[in-house]
Design a protein around this nucleic acid. Sequence first.
DNA 1: TTAGGGTTAG
Length: 529
Amino acid sequence: MFACLPRLSDVTGKSTNLLYRFVFARNFAAHTDHLFDELPQRDLSALNSQLSSYLRSGNPNGTLALFLKMHRASSDLSSHTFTPVLGACARLSYPETGRQVHALMIKQGAETGTISKTALIDMYSKYGLLVDSVKVFESVEDKDVVSWNALLSGFLRNGKGKEALGVFAAMYREEVEISEFTLCSVVKTCASLKILQQGKQVHAMVVVTGRDLVVLGTAMISFYSSVGLMSEAMKVYISLNVHTDEVMLNSLISGCIRNRNYKEAFLLMSRQRPNARVLISSLAGCSDNSDLWIGKQIHCVALRNGFVSDSKLCNGLMDMYGKCGQIVQACTMFSAMPSKSVVSWTSMIDAYAVNGDGVKALEIFREMCEEGSRVLPNSVTFLVVLSACAHAGLVEEGKECFGMMMERYRLVPGTEHHVCFIDILSKAGDTEEIWRLVERIMIENNNRNLPCAIWVAVLSACSLNMDVSRGEYAAMRLMEETGPENASIYVLISNFYAAIGKWDMVEELREKLKKKGLVKAAGHSSLFI
DNA sequence: TTAGGGTTAG
């Protein structure tokens, strides 16, 4: 299946990942489409239209299957062929396939032009490969507002809000004429960073420039909800009353729940029959707020509207019951589910883990891994399992799971997995093993400094196990990474020195903290007595 | 070629 496509390494010298090729081939084996053979004449523009049509109708597999047939039959493909194909690759999350298509574009000279390159920027950012995305952007000769927007939304999608704002500032400097797409992404960025003033400024720009407010209005409602200003969100909604739609209303309802404005939320729900999606979002709000009573009411609304067979809604309900401490109710829902997805299993494992039953969490995990369950654990599952082991002090089990993740399931541990594993090893007093792990991660990271979270975990482990030299090294690396303005890091390092009895260092750090006028944000509990 | 519901698990 893949022999007909080149590898990006053939063109650029980069390495390829065999696993992606396996996954992709397996997926395609099930997809046999006869459209190409049935077409009376293989007109390139008609086929290109069909590629786009598959993508628009939510069938990216169809786009790729047809594309492969086109490629096998003729090497004469145009840039109009590649843009929908790149969109399909991005939708299916197979980075290696996308790279292969990119390679073919380079070979055929179809990589030029703003539109093709914008599709590449978008695809790489949807894979999370921002370095590649930026590289393509830099190579665009005639950057237009769409290519800028693709870069901006790419940063936003990958949680790089500050960088996204940087792109917006650059657009301003370069005098790019911004569009509604730009404003929409910037509003979302302000929401993700929870920056009220900047968000208000964008709101003013939206109003002054008189943009179409159906989509932007929804983004504004979400923005005000995420900064906790429901009165402003409501004002936006009311000001657009004639032009509101279901999406906007759902955004408002979910915002009301998340901000505990329950009366308004249920009033809005009573005006129009809610759909499953808004109930799922509202349940997530209840989970975050640990609000069992409201969660139960939403369960009732779901029952009244006949949504209880919706598997995603069941997952949401199960998670809500688990997070609100109702493990029996969560378990009952889990058992009753006819089809359990990886999310259902992971939610159930997490429910036991957060309620302090690490042994039971592991039992469910093992059940999931049995061959009969036919659901594979993913990286979130392992994070939940490792976290359960860390909290319950299940050292051997944690080691076994960490090994299983890489060897049996071929999953690459991320920073959060490493942090959990360091915590597990710390409980076993095994700082030697922690250090071997840190050295391995550093090699994998090409000797660049590690994420702060890793050094924080190492420092905590060294405090617990009185490992002075390694702790001092971790403290040094942490300071390098965060800079001297981070009060929490000062306190953390100071606590380490206190744990090992170096009180002169504790005093020195506290003095520095005082001189700089830094204040650590106070912790708080969400429990009310 | 780029945007709207933090639809479910970390």
